[in-house]
Amino acid sequence: MLGFLSPTSTPKGSTHRAPGLWAWIVLSPLLIWLLLFVVAPTLVLTAVSFAERDSLGRIVWNFSVQNYARAFDWVWVKILLDSLYYAFLTTLICLALGYPAAFFIGKAPERWRGFLLLLVMVPFLTSFLIRTYAWINILSKEGFLNSLLISAGVFNEPVAVLYSPFAIVLGLVYNFLPFMILPIYTSVEKLDNGLVEAAHDLGAGPLRAFSQVILPLTRPGIVAGSMLVFVPSIAMFAITTLMGGGTNPTIGEVIFKQFTAGRNQPFGAALGTILLFVFILALWLARTQRERED
């Protein structure tokens, strides 16, 4: 991110009189966007998290750390850990499903790749909520899946698939899988086949070639994909409430409820700020990991 903020690295010998200025102008929409919609709200959120509120839920600007003291009660920590667990599981499954898919697309004949990538992105053409409701119709007791299984004679009685932890993970994996496939695909596409062949020529079996050549070379895609899946999965509460039945509160849901029904924006903001630190920690870990490898 900091690299963005020092746009003075224009190549030497450029004909512009003020290269720095031009770079700033080109970057300004992005910078303004980041300031308005990332930096400013984060600062407001942090400020609110140290405030109090009145009976209507309006913010009272008295400095207080009580929201943070409360946020470390076991119940909130447990909900955060549960959310992290679901996000971790989702990332793992997305990786297991997405890596082979991305590899297949990346190694497919060039004229097929565009079409295959299009297929990955087709679900985005429909609203996320409509797709989630479609899953509700498929998984419900009188839904498509159950009637199929019963008419095929697999089960005699409908099984409860919807409103379970399984349904939550299914919903999360379904929604975030493309975010895993696309970055890995980019890494796979760039993969030099010559290196893989060299590994084979030097006597590496398929397993060794994969673990010592292909995997390290596609690692940037894996890291990027995992981050793109893991981070939004933590706070994605629409799926846990709609497909999970709301029986396992997640951190996104409890923050939302503190902002609304609880009329306690400061406490919601404190939980949000803590969540933000978890994200930063995750990104920092991924980054140091990468630097160590470089």
């Binding site: 119940v75 409890v254 503190q258 609880g262």
Partner: peptide
């Protein structure tokens, strides 16, 4: 009747039991 700031406690009680 309006319960003002108690709403947050009600929310916490139910969330705690759900979790």
């Amino acid at each position: 009747k309006d319960i003002g700031t108690k709403g947050s406690d009600v929310e916490e009680l139910i969330t705690t039991l759900k979790a």
